[in-house]
């Protein structure tokens, strides 16, 4: 064997060993709760920095009908198997009612027809999945703000929680693995925050969350809760699910979902 070939082999070997050590170290660090907590601390910094430099009332960009995506990728649950939901779907949601309760003066129970009669907004917006893709869709729905005003928020109200019909993860108990999401009151009262019942000028399809899904523009796709059954106004969400304010936030994703 020539000297160069020998040296090359040695260098390759050293490179591969160093690389594997580096990777193993990164995996071990990822498995360490203390280290990941340190990394997660940057999240608080990101959230606060974003809150500081962004205008929380700014509208998300709206697009023209020509910009609509020919195909809008459905993600997460695309057909809930929950018996309660299957029964509601069989009746075309005639017996579905949206409950709005929790820290409100006058709890509401609205049929789909009643929800459709509420002040509405139509918007063509970009949906950004945390995976990296985007799709543009047209949404029509009842504005959440006026609905909350109708129910009357109690003084200690701070977050709005959306309880969904679909079960995406495994879990114990009736609520285990159930999808849910939450937003703060600034986002709840944002004009583009709607309970959408129409998509691209048609009734909201099951794959996209029929009968009603949340649109909270300016946040990632996993915040756009589908198959909404119940809205609960709370002062804290640490006792719901695993305590992080949503199905995916309970699984390591950011609650504020702004980046």
């Amino acid at each position: 064997m020539t000297k160069t070939a020998n040296r090359r082999r040695w260098l390759t070997g050293a490179g591969v060993s160093l690389g594997s050590l580096w990777l193993a170290a990164c995996d071990r660090l990822t498995a360490s709760p203390a280290y990941m907590k340190t990394l997660a601390s940057a999240e608080g910094l990101t959230r606060r920095a974003q809150r500081l430099v962004t205008d929380r009332k700014a509208l998300a960009r709206e697009f023209k009908p020509a910009d609509l995506s020919p195909w809008f990728k459905p993600n997460g649950t695309i057909r809930p198997a929950d018996p309660e939901y299957v029964a509601l779907l069989a009746e075309n949601f005639a017996n579905w009612r949206l409950e709005i309760g929790g820290l409100v003066e006058r709890p509401l129970s609205l049929s789909l027809a009643e929800l459709r009669a509420q002040p509405s907004r139509t918007q063509i917006t970009r949906h950004d999945c945390v995976e990296g893709w985007s799709a543009i869709g047209k949404w029509k729905g009842a504005r959440l703000g006026p609905l909350l005003d109708r129910a009357g928020l109690k003084e200690n109200a701070r977050y709005v929680v959306f309880h969904c019909a679909d079960r995406l993860g495994a879990g114990e108990g009736p609520e285990g693995g159930k999808y849910y999401e939450s937003i703060d009151l600034i986002d709840a009262y944002h004009p583009q925050t709607i309970l959408a019942y129409e998509m691209n000028d048609a009734t909201l399809p099951v794959a996209h969350g029929a009968p009603v899904r949340l649109r909270v523009e300016r946040q990632l796709g996993y915040k756009q809760a589908k198959y909404i059954m119940r809205i609960e106004v709370v002062d804290r969400f640490d006792q719901i699910g695993r305590g992080n304010g949503g199905f995916w936030p309970d699984r390591g994703y950011e609650w504020y979902a702004g980046i």
């Binding site: 690389g19 594997s20 990777l23 990164c26 995996d27 990822t30 990941m36 340190t38 990394l39 997660a40 601390s41 940057a42 999240e43 910094l45 990101t46 945390v130 995976e131 995916w248 699984r251 390591g252 994703y253 950011e254 980046i259």
Partner: peptide, 24 residues
């Protein structure tokens, strides 16, 4: 491939944690 990513196994949530921390 696994040798090019952190963590080596598939985890978008952990990858984002690493990314945004080191972005700062």
């Amino acid at each position: 491939p696994a040798w090019a990513t952190i963590p080596s196994y598939r985890s978008l949530a952990d990858g984002r944690r690493w990314h945004f921390f080191f972005a700062w």
